[in-house]
Amino acid sequence: MPSLKTLRNRITSVKSTQKITKAMKMVAAAKLRKAQENVENARPYSEKMNQVIQNLKQSITDVNSAPKLLVGNQRNETHLCLVLSSDRGLCGGFNTNICRKAKLYFEKVLGENKKLKIIIVGNKAYDQLKRKYSEYVIEKISLKEEKVITFSKASEIADKILNLFTKDEFDICTIFYNKFKSVISQIPQQQQIIPAESNQTDKTDSTKDKNLQSYDYEPDENEILENLLPKNIATQIYKAFLENQASEQGSRMTAMDNATRNAGDLISRLTINYNRTRQAVITKELIEIISGAESL
């Protein structure tokens, strides 16, 4: 039986932990709202960008002269993976989920005897992946200093990737991030950005066909595409960043909510325990007094 003093200490300690998790939950909620707003604000840009690219794609007839970013370089040897994670912990299964998804992909690539290169954003994924895959990591980017992720930061990373692509350092680039579905559910996503995958746009193609029209291009289609695609990659990365950020806050909010609730449960159990022990001590003392008096 623990003594009254230890119980009392335990209760105070759990109470202060609860205060912290509660505060973290509220901070996450506030940040989440902002992050969600950012995601929504960024949507028109990437949607329009996609539309323009779809338009251009249809006007291209000769696949061979099409830009490499769109059709790939017809090889499938080296895979570059961009794994997005957070820099701070205490956000539930957020980082683990991305890492699990990424690991599955890594194993698949390595299993097929292909080369693997990894760029990691955020400390947490690096911590989880370094033990097994540190030899493949070519770069690690930390965004701890950045308060808000700006578009220019995303294009910086995009530039790095594009540089590698022009140097033929990789053939296929995939990006891993958590897609924000709701506060309680975030889905780890893998998205191929080079060559551009068109699976999500295919569905809408039939509906868009009607309002497709012939544009006047200035300069010609290929040149426009060549300039537009790198921009699109920056946009995709930026979008992934924002989704990831919203997911992180959502995930943290749920995790901290659970922690607060658990702390509450723990406190009530400890309090009952404490009261019982105190009562037991009182009863024991009373019995001692009574039996002492009786024996006289």
Partner: peptide
């Protein structure tokens, strides 16, 4: 400021994509 020169766009301009 178009890539190939400044231009002013009015109503009923031809459909256009440029930088």
């Amino acid at each position: 400021p178009g890539i190939e020169g400044d231009m002013e766009i009015f109503k009923d301009h031809i459909a256009l994509i440029t930088f």
